[in-house]
Nucleic acid binder design. Structure first.
Lengths: 111, 111
DNA sequence: ACCAGATACCTAGCATTGCAAGGTAACATG
DNA sequence: CATGTTACCTTGCAATGCTAGGTATCTGGT
């Protein structure tokens, strides 16, 4: 069974997904959930809806993201757009540096 | 409170710690727990005993590590040495490649 | 009018992990 | 013999990703 390996893959994504979501929102200034899923997939990150939406709601509740519904000028289902708050941008900077440190530790250990 | 940031730091370590532990054991062929904690600390990874020992036991139970007690030729408390099994080495290779992909995705998203 | 499909969001419950806190045991030193 | 160091282990909590569902709006075909 590939269980052990798959389980690890699930675990290593914890936290990492938040980082990637924040990076994408920063790059595009604002994004809505479904669009995010597609852009993550383009980057080879295949995230399911049941994974992403709780992340967005959590980060909104924590004040890292601001959310606003948009229905005007639109056909189709209304969309909820997310953008970085100042706190979100500050935390993202911290996360990028932290992840960079993890990468450098990994490189030291594997050589 | 710095809770949000600290919480993320806890989450992002999930899975990553296993990777680093396997890397260190591979490099040294065999290691015991307390020694691992010190070597991880040297690499700037400060892991508590209550974090490491469950990892080692789990990976032993999963057949990734082989364990053996050593008391002979030793003064002091007996030590439990761990070494990679073939499955452990195979999974480690997979993990290294997976983590490398995560790094490359991160770089793409942050530039 | 109706039904299927695409778009778009949300939630409940499970399994797994890292961590804090505490416990056990053997040996060395004063 | 009491303290400190080395060394291992376990219980219970908090947090996250995933599976598997559910809801709602619009479009296109028959």
């Amino acid at each position: 069974m590939a269980g052990t390996s798959d389980n690890w893959k699930t675990q290593i994504r914890k936290g990492y997904l938040e980082l990637c979501v924040l990076l994408l929102i920063q790059r595009h200034r604002k994004l809505y959930g479904f669009d995010l899923i597609e852009r993550l997939a383009e980057a080879s990150l295949h995230v399911k809806e049941g994974t992403l939406y709780p992340i967005l709601n959590r980060m909104s509740a924590d004040g890292l993201l601001g959310a606003s519904w948009e229905t005007e000028n639109l056909k189709g289902h209304p969309r909820k757009f997310y953008a970085l708050t100042r706190d979100g941008a500050r935390l993202l900077t911290e996360m990028e540096s932290e992840f960079g440190e993890m990468v450098s530790i990994f490189k030291n250990l594997s050589k």
